[in-house]
């Protein structure tokens, strides 16, 4: 069984989550465009990524890309 997470006092690192709750949201949307449209309508900063599967879905190339990393 994987090691369980121990409860830790919030650290400086953990404060990044606090920042998410206090800073203005600035969203990068990858996938369903409707989510971006709705956020935009609410006045939330959102950037939609015109995403397509890596290597146009070629599994061999996609596998190599994931190993060679970007």
């Amino acid at each position: 069984m994987p090691e369980l997470t121990r409860y830790m006092e919030p650290t400086m690192e953990n404060n990044k989550v606090t920042n998410l709750l206090t800073d203005p949201l600035d969203v990068i949307n990858i996938g369903l465009e409707g989510f971006a449209t709705e956020l935009k309508q609410q006045g939330v900063a959102v950037t939609h990524v015109d995403w397509s599967p890596p290597a146009a879905g070629d599994p061999k190339i996609a596998d190599l890309l994931s190993k060679l990393g970007t």
Binding site: L20, I28, I30, G31
Partner: peptide, 24 residues
């Protein structure tokens, strides 16, 4: 212009703080 990749989107929006991911 619309970014094709997360990398480009973050470059364009350096203050972005959340990725909402709904791809397959």
């Amino acid at each position: 212009w619309r970014p094709k990749s997360l990398r480009a989107a973050v470059k364009a929006r350096p203050d972005a703080n959340l990725a909402l991911i709904s791809v397959a």
